[in-house]
Simulated assay, not measured.
Amino acid sequence: MVVGLPAHASLSADIFFTVTKSISIYGSYVGNRQDAREALEIASRGRVKCYYEAKPLSALAETYEGLEQGKIVGRIVLDMRDD
């Protein structure tokens, strides 16, 4: 999520990966520089919670199954180092 609308900003996306990974891009005209400052201040006070779980790369199949079943809460971070 990006807060604010910088002048002359642009966005490019690879259409192949956007389609194959079912990525949705949404735009919003709401927000300004002050809103961005306030959002960062909220995050700096620890009021933004990020829910994630780290798993080894060997858990990839299990992770996909959890996604398909709707059992994943937050994000999964796969560790690409050797198990």
Rank of each mutant, 00 (worst) to 15 (best):
G27C: 07
R37L: 13
G66K: 15
D14K: 00
C50L: 13
L67M: 08
Y29C: 07
P6S: 00
S44V: 02
S12M: 03
N32S: 13
Q34W: 07
Q69V: 01
V3W: 09
V19W: 01
Q34P: 04
D83H: 05
D79K: 07
G70Q: 02
V77K: 07
V77I: 14
G27A: 08
Y26R: 11
G74W: 03
S10N: 04
G31D: 10
L60D: 11
E62A: 11
G4P: 01
A13P: 00
L67K: 15
T63H: 07
Y64H: 15
S22T: 03
Q34H: 11
S44L: 12
K71M: 07
Y26F: 03
D82Q: 12
A61R: 13
L40N: 11
A61E: 13
Y52A: 08
Y64E: 13
I72W: 03
S22D: 05
P56A: 06
A59F: 14
A54K: 15
C50Y: 12
A43W: 11
A13M: 03
D79Y: 06
I76E: 10
L11F: 05
Y52C: 10
R37A: 14
K55Q: 11
L57H: 10
R37N: 12
R47P: 04
V48F: 13
S28H: 07
E68D: 08
R81T: 10
L40A: 12
L40E: 05
F17K: 09
E65F: 06
G66V: 06
G46H: 10
